[in-house]
Amino acid sequence: MMSTTLQLSEPTRSVALRDCGQGPALVLLHGVGMQSAAWGPQIEDLSRTHRVIAPDLPGHGGSAPLPADSELPDFVAWLRDVLRALDLGPVSLAGHSMGALIAAGFAVSHPALTTRVALLNGVFCRDPAARAAVQSRAAEIAAGRCDLDTPLARWFGDSPTDIDARDRVAGWLKSVDPAGYATAYAAFARGDATYAGRLAEIACPFLAITGDGDPNSTPEMSQAMALRVRRGRAVTITGHRHMVNLTAPDLVTAELRNWLATPTPEEYPS
């Protein structure tokens, strides 16, 4: 899964991405602090039947950052630029955590370009305590104080699979550009309600997945999102936390395959 570089319209805006397989286009968006390699199990499997495109988010991996004051709609616009540069039409779109916020925003803003949308460990309308906690962490990251142990302890258990995934995630977090991380995390902290009131506009197949042990992207959030979408579906994976696509890769990939096989609006019976 070699990474390639895509040049956007502005000379300084480059995007690193993985582009594998042939078939209908599937775009995978990782979470804040991660990189496209975090989708490794899904890229390997789903690229057998789809053209899978997994970009590094701005300021992550090999992608150029967005300006420091960027908000969630700026990341949605960035994704539109990426798909335009790739000359893609409508795509199936799956995002994890911050990537889920971008995916939902894109589905709402560009319905004609979204065939399906899946949100993994997505946040939705945090309560005041959760919002205060994530905004406090955003301020710490912006100030250069980055505690990695606390989120890693929250995201992973003690199973061999969790430990292996934790080591990989720790490596990605340690290598992320601090400024790019701070920009993305601030947008993540403020973005959980940006498109929340418009989810009912989504007409394409919608899937929300999380782990029953994820305290911040809770099953209740996934269920609330799915209930707002005409053909939404929520799945809770028992015994897993925030990085379900790495700790339960086979279960997540199977759910994504089912989602990819769901009829699109044009195929729905009248």
Rank of each mutant, 00 (worst) to 15 (best):
M1C: 04
M1R: 12
T4F: 01
T5W: 06
L8Q: 13
E10Q: 15
E10I: 14
P11H: 08
P11L: 10
V15K: 06
V15M: 06
V15Y: 02
V15W: 03
V15C: 05
A16W: 13
L17C: 07
D19K: 15
G21A: 13
G23T: 07
G23E: 05
L26G: 06
L29S: 11
G33P: 06
G33I: 10
G33R: 08
M34Q: 10
M34C: 08
M34W: 07
S36M: 04
A37S: 07
G40S: 12
I43A: 00
E44A: 15
E44C: 10
D45L: 12
S47W: 03
S47K: 11
R48Y: 04
R48K: 14
R48T: 06
T49L: 13
T49A: 15
I53A: 02
I53G: 03
A54D: 01
A54T: 03
P58W: 08
G59W: 09
G59C: 09
G61L: 07
S63K: 05
L66I: 14
P67Q: 12
S70N: 14
E71K: 11
L72V: 09
V76F: 14
V76H: 11
W78S: 11
W78Q: 12
R80D: 13
R80M: 08
D81L: 07
G89R: 13
S92Y: 14
H96A: 09
I102A: 12
A103H: 05
G105T: 13
F106A: 03
A107Y: 11
V108Y: 09
S109D: 09
H110R: 10
R116G: 04
L119M: 05
L120M: 14
L120W: 06
G122K: 00
V123A: 05
V123R: 11
F124T: 09
R126G: 05
P128Y: 07
A129Q: 11
R131N: 03
R131E: 10
A132M: 05
A132K: 09
A133T: 10
A138P: 00
A139R: 14
A139D: 14
I141M: 00
I141P: 00
I141E: 00
A143T: 09
G144L: 05
L148R: 12
L148A: 00
D149W: 05
D162V: 07
D162T: 02
I163V: 11
A165R: 01
A165S: 08
R166Y: 03
R166E: 01
D167H: 11
G171S: 05
K174M: 06
A179P: 02
Y181M: 09
Y185V: 01
A187I: 00
Y195S: 04
Y195F: 15
A196L: 09
A196W: 11
G197H: 12
R198Y: 10
A203R: 13
L207D: 01
L207W: 01
T210D: 04
G213P: 04
D214P: 08
N216Y: 08
N216G: 13
S217L: 00
P219T: 04
E220Y: 09
E220Q: 13
E220D: 14
S222A: 15
S222V: 03
A226C: 06
V229A: 04
R231I: 06
R231M: 06
A234T: 01
A234R: 02
T236C: 12
M243N: 04
A248I: 06
P249G: 02
D250W: 04
D250I: 08
L256Y: 00
L260I: 02
T262D: 09
P265A: 03
P265V: 03
E267T: 03
Y268Q: 10
P269E: 07
S270T: 09
